[in-house]
Design a protein around this nucleic acid. Sequence first.
DNA 1: TTCAACCGATTGTATTTTGCAAGCAGTTAT
DNA 2: ATAACTGCTTGCAAAATACAATCGGTTGAA
Lengths: 168, 168
Amino acid sequence: MTDRLSGRSGCPINLTLEVLGDRWSLIVIRDMMFGNRRHFRELLGQSEEGIASNILADRLKRLVALGVLSRQDDPTHKQKAVYSLTDKGIELLPLLVQMGAWGRRHLPTTPELAIRQQLMEDGGPALVADFMAELRHLHLGTPLPVGHDPVLPRLRAAYEAELARREG
Amino acid sequence: MTDRLSGRSGCPINLTLEVLGDRWSLIVIRDMMFGNRRHFRELLGQSEEGIASNILADRLKRLVALGVLSRQDDPTHKQKAVYSLTDKGIELLPLLVQMGAWGRRHLPTTPELAIRQQLMEDGGPALVADFMAELRHLHLGTPLPVGHDPVLPRLRAAYEAELARREG
DNA sequence: TTCAACCGATTGTATTTTGCAAGCAGTTAT
DNA sequence: ATAACTGCTTGCAAAATACAATCGGTTGAA
């Protein structure tokens, strides 16, 4: 994808908005990153927000065309498709963290959903880099750095601890 | 603005998308920050992308209602309105910088528009902090730190230097 | 005092995007 | 045989967006 999408302008911020400036694209990417959802039905049914199936199909097709995601056939099931983040997609992580940071500070977030965000912020750029390395492993097959301490379980643990704290 | 917008979810990323997840809101904020545009007509006519007047009116109203912008009467002209960034709005700068960084790396940007972005990236968090202090001065009247080296002129100079380099 | 330029919007209309519910043909596990 | 599941499509209503024209009021210069 090297060509202009619409004829608005070549401003970096505008171009990013033309790719991601809607209500659902980044939700899909968020769920792929933080929820490790790789299949259509997973993305469809297990999200907090409830995307419609036609919208999801459209966004997946679009993001694949734009080079943010890729799509492979699942070898274990002739009808299953596996969606992966490309490197271009993985590099959206810092943007998502910034969005979450602003939302956490300025909008009425739910505590058990905000805790993951806080963990990402507290971990700083090093944690973001670790998570990106982990995503490259999960989505691109890149080997993990030696001594890598997995990030996704840490995020899940923080979420469940907060949930337990609030319930119990 | 402390209440949920729509009933989607309390996830920080989702809430931010509900506020800013469209093609124009962040364009308006970008022009207010980097172009120092404070009036309706300035925002309408001088942007690269050409927003429609009804959309602009809607976004301004909406962003004011959400506490990202504020609106004051211009004392020099009974019909003029001055739009300002609130602190909530100014704190979107790191998000815009991240968006620009991703766009510059992965999308076909125009060199003279990308140069400002590169300057922001090269300056790192310190430059972003300086710029935020400057925005607080321009929009909220906060005193500038002693020894402050203005950022907007630096950005403009970089833009014009790149423009001259490419023309001459 | 006239008048053209400018002010922040609004109106009307056409087009596009979104949201929702139902359903498709093919695949798999029981 | 069949029921559950796969990614994805269809039809239709509602909402958002785009475009052009224009509004009533203000201002500055002739």
